[in-house]
Write a protein that binds this DNA or RNA. Sequence first.
DNA 1: CTTTGCATGTAACATGTTACATGATTCA
DNA 2: TGAATCATGTAACATGTTACATGCAAAG
Lengths: 165, 165
Amino acid sequence: MAVLGALAVEDATGYGVRQSITETLGHFWHESFGQIYPTLATLEADGLVGRTPTGKFSITPAGVERLTELLSEPVEPTRPRNGLLLRLFFASHLPDGMARQLVQDARDQARVALAGYGAIEAEVAAESHPDADHWLATVRFGIHHAQATLDWAQETLVRLPDGEG
Amino acid sequence: MAVLGALAVEDATGYGVRQSITETLGHFWHESFGQIYPTLATLEADGLVGRTPTGKFSITPAGVERLTELLSEPVEPTRPRNGLLLRLFFASHLPDGMARQLVQDARDQARVALAGYGAIEAEVAAESHPDADHWLATVRFGIHHAQATLDWAQETLVRLPDGEG
DNA sequence: CTTTGCATGTAACATGTTACATGATTCA
DNA sequence: TGAATCATGTAACATGTTACATGCAAAG
């Protein structure tokens, strides 16, 4: 889905697909290197992607159809694995002060993320691409959640007694 | 880490460990069935857990030490896989109205989650367990993020033109 | 002329899920 | 007595990551 989607936006080499996924979808999706090339090979064999004269991969009409099909499948719920919350839950077994440190780190990361999203938001808004509305929606999701983490961290730092485990 | 942590809270059978993880840690952690039993076997072989006379697993002093060690390891960043945002990003290839539907579904789920968290929050606050502060912090995280999803969904529904792909 | 980035791929490894198999106990 | 829940485990399968191997091109 991610590979076909990336190619639906623009033609690219396998390397380029990976860059698109890392840079553009990076905030909400990832694909490892070892999956992209085999996937492209399969897609090509199935006639869902072809090659341009310059050697780039290019999505075919059948590929576009398949993409729509894939996107229409129900969203499968993600299984959570939040290492921060797991540690916080068992914080009584953590060395003194470490729980607090973890929350501070999360706060700092949220601040950085927030700044990054702000830049992307401005960029997308300026571009006026036909898909800008949807792209903006994904960025706004990131902003809301980064802000939530920031608010939570600040609230939690007030609530957790200083120097506590 | 999750299995040792669960046993640090109370003795349990393998089945019970799974229940603890599903019910108590469920909002931020999961372990599949096929992992818990092999893990328990390894932990027992390593002397990190033992058995009570009633057959339940019980964490040993060495196990507690190991738990602290594990919890002290750096939080490894999770690789994102957000099916909702992926679909939204490529929404121009989605059938008409489906993007809107996805956001509405997310909003409804966030509302349900929020109500659930509220109940848990009240419950934890009432218990006055020594770890209540930390447990509350994890619940508050869920509340902040569910609220973020709710706010985002409402904002997005206003921004996305009606009946749009 | 050498380092960085572009480009392609594979194979070994690690992780994680599902389905199956089995049986005891409890409750209606 | 039959269904649901408790309880334990394994084996096949699916998924996903890392390290390795290779080579070209551009920039400094």
